[in-house]
Amino acid sequence: MDTTFETITLKNDEMPVMLVTGSAKRIGAAIIQAAHYQGYRVIIHCRQSVQQAQALAAKLNTAREHSAAVIAADLSLINDVDLLEQFVQKIIHAFGRLDVLVHNASRFYPTPLSTIDHNHWDELFLSNAKAPLFLSQALLPYLKRYQGCIISLLDIHAQDKPFEHYTVYNMAKAAHQMLVQSLALEAAPDVRVNGIAPGVNILPDNSSDQAIDHQQQRRIINSIPMQRIGTPEDIAHTVLFLAKASYITGEVINVDGGRRLTLAGGSD
């Protein structure tokens, strides 16, 4: 991992706290590790990847005691007022405060026209739009106490460049982007709200149904002005920048190697 961040020395109970949803692995884990190195106490949220989350927390707690916690929960709990309140109390109980909320958890899969059903709609909108809204609303009073911020991971396909065969996902991410801008108005001046729109910053697992072959990878790389796939650390750096950028709110930063400049929409 890149360790170019300035090291911060604070008493443990003074260290800011960051919660990242869906952070047991991949981009979420990269954000957690970068934030921890920067001096944050971190809350690792997961749904099913409990073993990975606990291993990550153990590693971070070995480096600095009582600095990482794990909360396992299905974000569908937002549909139940009591369960949502219990989830919020677990978050605050972990370290007694919350400074940064990062919406990273996301379901992603194709929904070609003529195959879309209500389950697709409910699942993709829940993780990519509804949960970020209701979690933000529930945690806003705690973020206000420390002039905190909310950072949402969006997608370069969320605006003007739809990804072919991903209609429901595109719609959900577009809704999430509007949520960022709307909350930035309502939460100001106490809480800043910004977004990050990744391009190709991590490839699907080879074992997943979204896996792409070498030829597809080469075609993607050729479409990126920077001529390379991004990394989870690129996203993590941007999260940490926005967490400290005290005069930026309502913005969406594309972290895509310039791909959005050449992207015409569609599947490539």
Rank of each mutant, 00 (worst) to 15 (best):
N194K: 04
N194F: 01
G195C: 04
G195Y: 04
G195M: 08
I196R: 00
I196Y: 00
A197M: 05
P198V: 14
G199V: 11
G199Y: 00
G199M: 11
V200C: 01
V200Q: 00
N201F: 06
N201A: 06
I202E: 12
I202V: 08
I202S: 09
L203Q: 03
L203I: 08
L203W: 11
L203A: 02
P204F: 07
P204E: 00
P204S: 12
P204A: 11
P204I: 03
P204C: 04
D205K: 14
D205S: 14
D205L: 03
D205G: 08
D205Y: 05
N206F: 01
N206K: 10
N206D: 13
N206G: 06
S207I: 12
S208Q: 04
S208C: 12
S208F: 02
S208H: 12
S208V: 11
D209S: 03
D209W: 00
D209T: 05
D209K: 03
D209V: 03
Q210W: 02
Q210A: 15
Q210N: 10
Q210P: 09
Q210C: 06
Q210G: 06
A211K: 07
A211P: 02
I212R: 01
I212W: 01
I212K: 00
D213V: 07
D213R: 01
D213T: 10
H214K: 09
H214W: 06
H214A: 12
Q215S: 14
Q215N: 05
Q216W: 02
Q216E: 12
Q217M: 06
Q217E: 02
Q217I: 13
Q217W: 07
Q217Y: 10
Q217R: 10
Q217A: 02
R218L: 10
R218N: 09
R218Q: 14
R218D: 07
R218H: 13
R218W: 09
R219F: 07
I220T: 05
I220P: 00
I220N: 02
I220L: 13
I221K: 08
I221F: 05
I221E: 08
I221Y: 13
N222G: 07
N222E: 15
N222R: 07
N222K: 01
N222D: 11
S223M: 03
S223K: 10
S223W: 10
S223I: 09
S223H: 14
P225T: 07
P225C: 04
P225I: 13
P225G: 09
P225N: 14
M226E: 12
M226F: 15
M226W: 14
Q227E: 15
Q227G: 06
Q227A: 07
R228N: 08
R228A: 13
I229Q: 05
G230A: 04
G230N: 14
G230V: 13
G230W: 00
G230R: 02
T231N: 04
T231E: 07
P232M: 03
E233I: 14
E233S: 05
E233D: 14
D234R: 04
D234S: 13
D234M: 14
D234T: 12
D234A: 11
D234K: 05
I235L: 12
I235S: 05
I235F: 04
I235W: 10
